[in-house]
Design a protein around this nucleic acid. Structure first.
Lengths: 121, 121
DNA sequence: TATTCATATGAGCAATTGTTCATATATTCA
DNA sequence: TGAATATATGAACAATTGCTCATATGAATA
């Protein structure tokens, strides 16, 4: 699949072949790139972002999340499932309620960096 | 819209009203949360992630990106437009070619944190 | 055990998104 | 100017996604 990069492009062939080779050496595996995109996709929805912001404050149960964000319990539950699958939140059952909390520090760092970026825009 | 949070939830009303108030005080503006989600949405596609990884190596023109990632020039151009709108990349014209480069350090930090997270999964 | 409360989940629908295809714009050079 | 090269862009289509609605599961309590 890598062999045969003879397509000419921008008139300068040599430099480009070198670049293509370097890129293929340095770039992570396809699967890892895919997983990375999947992770950011999770951050790419304002409902989930708002859930994470609530969890910055405290460990919160589903119905409180729904109330705080003025959304249905079902909608919140669906999103929590996605957040949990991506290991961004943990859950803990206490009687009838289930409490959700942030899973690790990356969540804060990623969101903080994102905030910095949009504030500079 | 905030008034009248009398809906009972999990049997304990007082704590929750306090939480809802705290959340509404600490949470960023709706528009900022929306912009933040829009930013992460840009990272949430493996083609754009791959473009950013190529740009980690060097400033690259469109046709080289297309060749390096084995995609059509049109597909790459469409994605570059999105990356530019979000100020994640800069562009510079040189003759017939247009060279793209990373815009700022946030891109590296965000992707690095994302990589750390998925490696721990 | 039957009921109630809290949460989870599957199906369906509207909205969004990434790619392709055709074509437009921009630059260089004969 | 006209042809060739590099890039940008609009329309269209398939695929994905977030919400709603109905319902299932799980736990406490009468």
């Amino acid at each position: 699949m890598l062999a045969g990069n003879e397509i000419e492009c921008c008139d300068t062939v040599e430099v480009h072949e070198e670049l293509v080779r370097a890129v293929h050496e340095q770039m992570p595996e396809e699967e890892q790139l895919y997983d990375l995109a999947e992770l950011f996709k999770v951050f790419g929805d304002s409902t989930r972002i708002r859930i994470l912001f609530v969890l910055f404050e405290a460990e919160v149960c589903v119905c409180d999340l729904a109330q705080a964000l003025n959304m249905t319990q079902s909608a919140i539950s669906h999103q929590l499932k996605i957040l949990k699958q991506t290991k961004l939140v943990n859950s803990r059952r206490e009687g009838k309620s289930v409490f959700y909390s942030l899973a690790d520090g990356h969540v804060r760092t990623i969101i903080a960096q994102g905030m910095e970026h949009i504030e500079e825009m």
